[in-house]
Amino acid sequence: MTQAQVVLARLALLGLVLAAWQFLPRWGVVDARLLPALGDVLAMLGQLLGRSQVHEAIAVTAAEVAVAFVIAVPLGAAIGVLAAENDYFGQIFKPMLFYVFSVPKSIFLPMFILIFGIGFEQKVAYAAFSTIFIVIMSATAAVESVKSDHVLVARSCGATRTQILLRIYVPSMMPVLLETLRISMIFNFTGVMIAEMYASRTGIGHLIANWGENFQMPQLFAGVILLAAVAILFNEVVRHLEVRVSAWRT
């Protein structure tokens, strides 16, 4: 298949799904109370975006996501690099990190509520906690993706430790690091949403949970579309960067 055919097929599939969403509820094939027509959902989304309550919720959620991300990524990356580069630290902490990584983080949410109460800190702390393990694992893998041959070549060219770090480690790790950024954002976003939906007074997750409980389906789907759009946009921007810096990876 040519590139054009692939794009065409994808657009056709998307069109089909959207058309089904629009017409199946209208024709009464599916219950419009459970799945409101796409047109109604989009109209609702337009309305919601005009409300100050929604603006506040978006601002709160965005702040939580940003702060949790800024805490989890550098901290996780530092721990991951340390675990990979320092044998002593790695041998002691790696098994524990791997064990905790395998446990679903949502079971710890009640503890975060007990420690921080319900609010900004609790949601940020929980999201950072649920993100940091994937960052640690990926950072470890990133360090291990640096080839010892390349370090040897650099040393033979007289590179200092700093030069090896900047000219060999950073470019070698960049594709994996960007991938980490992308995947950790998925975990981070999920963490904030779970925290907001479980117990919160503000935020998009809280609104969505409320709409669901009150059977306000157009609002619920409008929220889903909004979140999906933001998540996909972030993911695609980073993926685009990833492709650009890893053109050499074959």
Binding site: K147, D149, H150, L152, V153, A154, S156, C157, G158, A159, Q163, R167, I168, P171, S172, M174, V245, W248, R249, T250
Partner: peptide, 23 residues
């Protein structure tokens, strides 16, 4: 070295320049 071990993220010219760039 064995197996070229060029830096895959640099062009041929940048690979050759690498030792000079360090200095």
């Amino acid at each position: 070295f064995q197996e070229a071990s060029l830096f895959p993220w640099l062009s041929a010219l940048d690979n050759i320049e690498f030792p000079l760039a360090l200095r």
